[in-house]
Design a protein around this nucleic acid. Structure first.
Length: 647
RNA sequence: GCCGGUGUAGCUCAGGUGGUUAGAGCGGCGGUCUCAUAAUCCGCAGGUCGUAGGUUCGAGUCCUACCGCCGGCACCA
């Protein structure tokens, strides 16, 4: 049997499983089930990414050792995926010894081939982002979070990524199917074709302890890239599964998979994966999900209230795979009732009931020519699955359900049943509908494994539905009389309000339960920053250090957008000097220029001038920085004179 | 600012290479059947296909400009 190896990303254990993780894993699981039904020996790897400074810190905050902390979260992921009955063959943790060996092997091979060198690097480092901030200067803050930077000189191991720029461009141009959807490939090519090409990549750290040691470099541990990506191989060490046939990822990690990863593998003389598919994000009320917004949705409550299949179906039917999509509880319940309860569930129920009532629970199979669009549905559904166009596959399957419902009304078996002369006709109708239901059940099985297994039994089959082969689906079973068991409902209708209330209740309980595992108190309000990564305090300073900073009250006299930049405002601020100062501030997303004129602000008056977009900025506006959010200017409740110093 | 994508009925979206009255699902309204999970089936939505031009005998479908939204890059002190 030909193998087909699929991977999900490995999930960072800084957070408990949420619906975004679940989405990727569901899609991977569905594809795996589909491939199995195509006759492949399909395998699926997932896992957890457990190293790094953030984890060290979160563990400390939770009062645990990194090992205990990651054990707990990894177990949480594992349990959640087990609850969902995903067909996971390999669950790899980056803290496992088999993984460390593979990472070191990758390194050794790259080094032997001349792609590793050591170099010291001095720069401003953001602890929160675990990354150097390029071109930062003294006094700068983390651009993402506004948190202080540390000046760090570090000896790092570098990977010669720059050597692969041209090869990567050629590769992506010659292999348009390697990275899908198309729009992601365009972005990668645009990135690769940047002036100057790719820069070498720092792959080790001496500032972190919680990581895999670099061979021959006692003070170094591997930084995220070599560590995380290699999981796809280490998970299947000792098998013939590598190279992967499909890396399923979210669009936020495209660059690592489509640029870094092929380069590493080339450098190590290892084969590349066959395909990368990047799906979109789940939005919640059209906003990105984030902890600070408090709109994280967890999978477990949905599973408990509605079943795993309901979530699987909703996510893959409602959202075009590859695009961003909105997630909403009411849409979930609506989809469930319309398509699963009224559609598939009801068709099964009415069909099987008639077979019981009119024919004592036996149906004659393969009665004659197809009168329903079975053949077209099969090919359309398979084509959709193959291209990971799940919504299209489901749409075509549900088209057959619809056709069957219509056919039943047209043929009115309940009338035929009253006419002894129409007995053959009734047999044919029941047989046709039964066969359509059989096809639907098999085709939908990758998405609805649990429900379809139940329907399959109700149809009188004793072998598992997942062992059916899609390639043989169109061949009707040999003519026989099949008896079916008593009818049971598969998708009971759900009351909208009751269900949503239940979902909300369970969600609250689940959030509280997860908070405990993450070492947080449940009541802890959402703070400005991610609770797991509270801003570490900057190093202690003396009063003498502080007085070096000259903070002044100023009034904005003039404000306009800086041409060619969407975050910058050009301000003129009066702090009592003869001329108002020019200050360029990155607050354009948060404040319209006209709303600022006349406003009192706090500025750092003795900051070294800096040129930004051609304007010399003499000072810096003081503002609160929020994670992923917009800056908020400091201000005063009482009247203050222009030029007053803050101490 | 550059690059890519996108803007079609209340909502979610289909509409290869331009061609009769622009489609589906959901919701809503009316009706029907009774096998079925108050399910099914039928009918009803009069939408300037973002805006303005252009090419064409003819454009939602091609071109240009502009506007809105999304993303990538630049940018953020």
């Amino acid at each position: 049997m030909e193998k087909f190896y699929i991977t999900t990303p490995i999930y960072y254990v800084n957070a408990a499983p949420h619906i975004g993780h679940t989405y990727t894993t569901i899609a991977s699981d569905v594809y795996k089930r589909y491939k199995r039904m195509q006759g492949f020996d399909a395998r699926l790897t997932t896992g957890t990414d457990e190293h790094g400074q953030k984890i060290e810190r979160s563990a400390k905050k939770a009062g645990k050792s990194p090992q205990d902390f990651t054990d707990a979260i990894a177990a949480e992921f594992k349990q959640t995926w087990e609850n969902f009955q995903f067909g996971i063959d390999f669950f790899q943790r980056t803290t496992s010894s088999s993984h460390a060996e593979k990472v070191q092997e990758l390194y050794n091979r790259c080094k032997a081939n001349g792609y590793i060198y050591k170099s010291s690097y001095t720069g401003y480092y953001s602890v929160v982002q675990e990354a150097f901030v390029q071109d930062a200067k003294e006094g700068d803050v983390d651009p993402e979070t506004g948190q202080p930077l540390e000046l760090v000189t570090e000896e790092n191991c570098f990977f010669k990524l720059s050597a692969f720029t041209d090869k990567l461009i050629a590769f992506h141009e010659e292999n348009p199917d390697f990275l899908q959807p198309e729009t992601r490939r365009n972005e990668v090519l645009a990135f690769l074709k940047q002036e100057g090409g790719l820069k070498d990549l720092s792959i080790s750290r001496t500032t972190i302890k919680w990581g895999i040691p670099v061979p021959d470099e006692p003070d170094h541990v591997f930084y995220v890239w070599f560590d995380a990506l290699t999981t796809y191989m280490s998970a299947v060490s000792g098998t013939e599964l590598w190279p992967a046939d499909l890396h399923m990822i979210g669009k936020e990690i495209v660059r690592f998979h489509a640029i870094y990863w092929p380069a590493f593998l080339w450098a190590a003389d290892w084969p590349l994966p066959k395909k990368i598919f990047a799906h979109g994000w789940l939005l919640f009320d059209n906003n990105k999900m984030s902890k600070s917004r408090g709109n994280i949705v967890r999978p477990e409550p949905i599973r408990q209230a509605m079943g795993a299949d309901a979530l699987r179906y909703y996510l893959l039917r409602e959202i075009v795979f590859g695009s961003d999509g909105n997630f909403a509880y009411d849409a979930l319940v609506t989809r469930y009732n319309a398509d699963l309860a009224n559609g598939l569930g009801n068709l099964a129920s009415r069909t099987l009931s008639m077979i019981h009532q009119y024919r004592g629970g036996t149906v004659k199979t393969a009665s004659g020519a197809q009168t329903l669009p079975i053949s077209n549905t099969i090919s359309a559904a398979i084509e959709g699955y193959e291209k990971l166009d799940f919504s299209k596959a489901l749409e075509s399957i549900w088209g057959l359900i619809s056709a069957a419902d219509k056919y039943i009304v047209e043929q009115a078996p309940w009338k035929l049943a009253k006419d002894p002369a129409a007995a053959d006709q009734l047999d044919a109708v029941l047989s046709n509908v039964y066969d359509a239901l059989r096809v639907v059940t098999v085709l939908a099985a990758p998405v609805l494994p649990d429900s379809c297994a139940r329907i399959w039994k109700l149809l009188g089959f004793t072998t598992p539905v997942e062992s059916e082969l899609l390639g043989q689906l169109e061949d009707a079973p040999t003519a026989e009389t099949r008896s079916i068991p008593p009818v049971e409902p598969v998708f009971p209708r759900l009351d909208m309000k009751v269900t949503i209330d239940k979902l909300n209740d369970l969600e609250q309980q689940e959030a509280a339960r997860q908070a405990v595992i993450l070492g947080k108190t449940a009541e802890e309000p959402k703070s400005a920053v991610d609770e797991g990564t509270a801003i570490p305090l900057a190093p202690e300073i003396t009063i003498d250090d502080f007085v070096k900073v000259d903070l002044r009250v100023g009034e904005v006299k003039f404000a306009e957008r800086v041409k060619g930049a969407d975050k910058l405002l050009h301000l003129k601020v009066d702090i009592g000097e003869p001329e108002p100062r020019t200050i360029v501030a990155g607050i354009a997303l948060a404040y319209a220029p006209e709303t600022l004129v006349g406003r009192k602000v706090v500025i750092v008056a003795n900051l070294a001038p800096r040129k930004l977009r051609g304007l010399e900025s003499r000072g810096m506006i003081v503002a609160a920085s929020l994670e992923g959010g917009k800056p908020v200017l400091a201000g005063f409740l009482e009247h203050v004179p222009i030029g007053a110093r803050l101490k």
